[in-house]
């Protein structure tokens, strides 16, 4: 019944046997015990489960674990640039600008924002809001999330200029 898969998650290779119906989000949470990726709905609507697969933001509640076979996954646990606790500018931005309250939507928000900044390093407020259309936050009213992403964008642009 199990299907063997190999995936790289946050730079580390994993081998596992998965039931075909296991969702990628449950593979991450239950099998690999990386619980930073959350489940907030049944319909691919809330974005709490947003991760990157092969460099693109995707909703891990709407992908089967078997479909990730051979793929590269990045989750919130892999956001630290040195893998050693240094915060990514987005993580820093969310803290500095109070972009989170209960924290449940935060990993998905950060992963969605990371995908945006890769495509558009200098987004306008409207572009940021548009890019978050697949992610619900019920705590912040999005105001400080927008500011958090602007903070990160500013910082990342400066790093590029100086680095």
């Amino acid at each position: 019944m199990g299907v063997p898969i190999q995936v790289t998650v946050n730079g580390k290779p994993y081998k596992a046997e998965v039931e075909p119906r296991q969702l990628l989000v449950h593979f991450l949470r239950d099998t690999l015990r990386m619980t930073g990726t959350h489940v907030g709905c049944d319909t691919s609507s809330c974005g709490a489960c947003t991760i990157h697969m092969n460099g693109e933001a995707v909703k891990s509640c709407t992908i089967l674990a078997v479909q990730a076979d051979g793929g590269e996954i990045k989750t919130i646990e892999g956001m630290s640039p040195d893998g050693n606790g240094t915060l990514h500018p987005l993580q820093e931005g969310f803290k500095e600008e109070h972009g989170l309250q209960c924290g449940f939507c935060t990993p998905g928000m950060i992963m969605a924002a990371d995908a945006l900044l890769k495509e558009n390093p200098n987004p306008s407020e409207t572009e940021i809001r548009h890019a978050l259309e697949g992610n619900f936050c019920r705590c912040t009213g999005y105001h400080n999330i927008v500011k958090s992403i602007q903070y990160a964008a500013d910082k990342m642009r400066k790093e590029v200029t100086h680095g």
């Binding site: 956001m79 803290k95 989170l100």
Partner: peptide, 20 residues
């Protein structure tokens, strides 16, 4: 700045469904 943020922004928050 909030002291609780670090665990949430690094995916280390512990919600009930995270407990096994």
């Amino acid at each position: 700045k909030r002291v609780e943020d670090k665990r949430f922004i690094t995916g280390k928050g512990k919600y009930t469904d995270d407990i096994v």
